[in-house]
């Protein structure tokens, strides 16, 4: 039995400790906001937080989350009021949208540690999150807007 906290709710799941966190949140718990992209930690679409740190859920075994707190895009705010979510809507960042949950979760991890990131900071932190629609300029603008810079 693996116990952890998911978006503020305690979970106790009888799953293989090696099952990646992505499968736990999508297939076992049913939260499908986090996306499967590459399955190899190369695209960032599956990014969630474990104790506030961004991790690639597709390669993170659920045992790593045991007795820790996991946050997915559904848990970033209860009503879409996180500054990043508001900025994302205001600037109409997404095109197809598939990568955007991962983009927002990585940006949230950045802003939690660095409230006023420079362009270079944003580029460094976000460089592992791919967007095949090429919305990178709007992503950067939205992160800066959320940061109030």
């Amino acid at each position: 039995m693996i116990r952890f906290r998911l978006n503020g709710t305690d979970q106790a799941l009888d799953v293989d400790p090696e099952m990646p966190l992505l499968w736990v949140v999508r297939d076992v718990v049913g939260l499908t906001g986090t996306k499967y992209g590459c399955g190899q930690a190369l695209c960032g679409a599956c990014t969630v937080h474990v104790d506030g740190e961004a991790v690639r859920a597709c390669v993170t075994p659920i045992r790593r989350a045991e007795n820790r707190s996991v946050t997915t895009i559904e848990g970033l705010s209860s009503d879409g009021s996180h500054p990043l979510q508001k900025a994302w809507l205001e600037l109409e960042v997404p095109q197809c949208g598939f990568c955007q949950a991962g983009q927002i979760m990585t940006a949230a991890a950045l802003l939690a540690k660095n409230a006023r990131p420079s362009d270079a900071d944003i580029e460094q932190s976000m460089s592992g999150n791919l967007c095949r629609c090429g919305t990178y300029n709007r992503i950067r603008l939205a992160v800066k807007k959320a940061a109030g810079t």
């Binding site: 740190e53 690639r56 993170t60």
Partner: peptide, 25 residues
């Protein structure tokens, strides 16, 4: 390194892209 990553101030990556964001134990 592909994807591109940065060393960060403590040699463990940067916020949102730490080494352990992808690398497990």
């Amino acid at each position: 390194h592909d994807p591109p990553v940065a060393r960060g101030p403590e040699d463990e990556g940067v916020p949102g892209a730490r080494c352990t964001s992808c690398h497990q134990d």
